[in-house]
Each structure stands twice: as structure tokens, then as C-alpha cells.
Design a protein around this nucleic acid. Structure first.
Lengths: 185, 185
DNA sequence: CATTCATTGAACATACATGTTCGTTCAACT
DNA sequence: AGTTGAACGAACATGTATGTTCAATGAATG
């Protein structure tokens, strides 16, 4: 796991794993039949130790902006904590087949969460709203904004501005009580 | 260049280049002292054949939204045309030293263009406006929005919505004539 | 105490990569 | 016609990686 983080799954060799573990190369082969098995085990174990944010974390909040901001903030914090591993995984995904399954699964998880948040805004399904929110939730977006020096809170606020700019103009941006028609779109 | 596009600079070997060129491996070594020289020559040649958008392309347009949309659109079209190469370069940058110089140069180019566009909006330098525009110009942003099925025009429009949402609320986004309050947004 | 089993050290075969060296062929230019 | 030089074919040395095989060690288990 250290090596996957430091040099990426692609460059991580069995020899390096054995060396890092202070163990003979053969010993690694005794525990894992081949490289693929090592990577699968590593991925599973790492995900158990670093579970991504889950909808229950923000279930208590009002649907719409509040809940969306909480989700964005949670993912951005998660990305910061796990930055190196995600950068390496993202980079090496195409070259390491054992990575593609878990990565696809994570993306599906992200997509479900995004769809749920979008449903929380009253507005009927808008392509641009969905695209913006899904984009905001992506690791690459966090990484891009991070290189510009924004902290996680500022990034969440900023992404929320993007999202709310896509909402119908005469809506109620505050805690929904008066349900003035969410007409037009 | 074909191989750099298809499998990426990192996986491109001299053997493969020779084979693809229908030539002996030794012949490649006659033209280029080593792998680094091949990659440098390849990068330079490719950039000559695929020059990125340049400010003169949109110099005729009004500063502000119009010019920004033209720039975004130009880069998005460029990214679509050169998608595979940029994806591969982005992915392999950390592993191929010969790539890091040109990539840094391109990023600097992008940054200059972004700063110029921002200056075109009257607004005093706003961190969030700058972050949004620089983010919108990045290849990773194009790639992210592209996976969601948006075409280049829709992407440029969408990014422009993000940017204009960051402008001071009671500003005059149009050539100032009718200043009926364009409130909120 | 005896057995078991993970670990060790040292090989091995295979594959592929980078550069280099050598003598040969073959086309073009002077 | 003769010289030049690019391309060829076949090696070489070196490094690194994946897996496998074999005998020896050594500690924990029964």
C-alpha cells in the first residue's frame, strides 16, 4: 500500500514489495499467487481502511444546497486525505487491470450520490445541472482546484456557486417551505 | 507519434518505433542518440503540427464574456481533436522526464491566457473567478465534461455560466445601455 | 521432543528493455 | 567507377521483471 501510494500501482514490483516488507521475494509469492492477486488484495484492504464518504453522512441535512455542500465538502476532505493514492490510481488505471474494477465501482458510487443530490433540488432533471454537479464531485476537479491553492471549504463553496447558477432563476434558494411553482424547465 | 498517441509515451519503446516505421532498431539509434532524444523530437514535431489556440484567434472580440467563450470554445475543440495525445501525455508526464518541460510550458501558456481573459472582465481580481476560469480551461475539465456527453459548444456555454456566476451582482455584463438590474447572478 | 510450516538463500528459465559492436549490403552522389 | 553513408542482420552486455524449483534453516505447534 505504501508503494502504491508513493510510486503507483504500475511501478510497484513484487521485488520492491518484498524489500519494503523486509522479506524475501519468494515469501510474497507464498501469500499471493501473482501480481494481480497482490494488487486486488491491496485495493480491497486500502478501501476498507479509507472508506469514501457515504450518503448517511449528510442524510440529516435539508435536500438541496445544504446537503450538496456537505457532500462536496466530505468528498473534498476525503480527496485531500487520500490524494496521493487517488492520483496514482487515476494515473495507472489503464495500465493495471486489477484497478479497473474498483475504479469503475467508485465512479458508479459517485454517480449515484450525484443523482441523489440533484433530485434534492426541485428542478426537473437538467443536463447542465447534472453535468456540473457530477463534475464537481470528481477527483480531477478537486485536484485542479487544489493546484490553485483553494482549501476544501472554499472549493465546496465555489462548486456550490456553479451549481446554484444552474438553478431556475426565480426559485427559493432558502430552506424550502413556500413551494412557489418551480416552473420553467 | 502514432505510438505516443495509442499507448502513451511511457509504453513506447524504441523497438516498437522501429517496427512501426518498418525499420531496424539500429536505424532509430542512428537518428536519435537515445530514448530521450526521440521523445523530445516527437513532442516538438507534434506541437508544430498541432499548435494550441492562440489569443490572436479571439483578439477581435469584446473583452469579457464574448472573448472568454471564444477562448473556451477554441480550447475545447482543440482538446477534442487532440484528445488521445493529451490524455496520454497527462497520464505519463510524471514517468517521462522529456515530457515535463513541454507540459509545464503549455500550462504556463494556459495560465497567461486565463489571466488575460480575467482582466477583460472589469471586476477586481477575484480568487474564485480566476480559479473557475483557469479550471475551465484545463484539459481535465474538458475530459470530465466530455464523459458526460456534452459537446464543445455546450461545454463552453456551461463554463461561461460558472464564470459569470462569479461576477459582481450589480454589474453591467452587456455593453452598458439598458441597465435594468440583472439581479442575482 | 518431534513435527510442521513459514521463511530463507540461491538458483533457474523466460521475457523484454536499453544501448553497443561488428561486418555486410545497397543505393546515391561525386 | 569509386567513394560515401544509410540501412541491415546478427550478435553482445546489462539490467530488470515475472514466476518456479530446490534444499536448508528455524521457530512455533502439537
Amino acid at each position: 500500500m505504501q508503494l502504491h501510494e508513493e510510486i503507483g500501482p504500475r511501478a510497484t514490483t513484487i521485488s520492491a514489495i518484498a524489500e519494503r516488507a523486509g522479506v524475501q521475494r519468494l515469501t510474497v509469492y507464498r501469500h499471493f499467487p501473482d501480481e494481480t492477486a497482490v494488487f486486488q488484495a491491496c485495493t480491497r484492504h486500502w478501501l476498507e481502511q479509507h472508506p469514501p464518504p457515504h450518503p448517511t453522512d449528510w442524510a440529516g441535512l435539508e435536500p438541496g444546497p445544504a446537503r450538496t455542500r456537505a457532500a462536496l465538502s466530505a468528498f473534498y476532505r476525503y480527496y485531500r486525505l487520500t490524494e496521493r493514492m487517488w492520483a496514482a490510481s487515476h494515473r495507472d488505471e489503464s495500465a493495471v487491470p486489477a484497478l479497473q474494477g474498483p475504479m469503475a465501482e467508485f465512479r458508479a458510487h459517485l454517480r449515484r450520490i450525484g443523482d441523489n443530490l440533484i433530485a434534492g433540488f426541485g428542478a426537473s432533471t437538467d443536463t447542465r445541472l447534472a453535468a456540473t454537479l457530477h463534475h464537481a464531485l470528481a477527483f480531477t476537479t478537486w485536484a485542479s482546484l487544489n493546484t490553485q491553492g483553494l482549501d476544501d471549504g472554499a472549493m465546496a463553496d465555489l462548486a456550490l456557486v456553479w451549481v446554484t447558477a444552474l438553478l431556475p432563476p426565480s426559485d427559493t434558494p432558502r430552506p424550502a417551505e413556500a413551494d412557489t411553482a418551480t416552473h420553467r424547465e
